[in-house]
Amino acid sequence: MLPTMSVTGEVVWENRMITPDRLSRGDLVTYVSPLDPTRLVCKRLIGLPGDVVCVDPTGTLAPSTEHVVVPKNHVWLIGDNAAASRDSRVYGPVSMALIKGRLVARVWPLSQFTIFRSNFSYID
């Protein structure tokens, strides 16, 4: 998740009392990895149900022209550091039943306290 979160580790505040269908694009969410049920991972939410997303704009994991519609009750999740991330580009849309929480703020180190807000800007 570079550059949002550092490799050395930090303490974040996670809200686990969420309703997955109230999430919005740009949220940082935690979910159990579909590849390994023992791992909790954190990625950025890119697509909500019904959205059309480009699987991989760089064309490394899928042709850059390939687009999919995110199915009902699923979301599209991508790591910020795309080169070192296994995410929806690998395993496709993720069921909302796997989502555990949403990151609210970074609380440690104190000098880098941040409230995570959506970094999405929409183009008309």
Binding site: P20, P71, K72, N73, H74, S95, M96, A97
Partner: peptide
């Protein structure tokens, strides 16, 4: 996880 087990799971289609 074993083949043939009857399991309870959350449906990915509607949780």
């Amino acid at each position: 996880y074993e083949r043939g087990d009857v399991v309870a799971l959350q449906s990915p289609a509607d949780s």
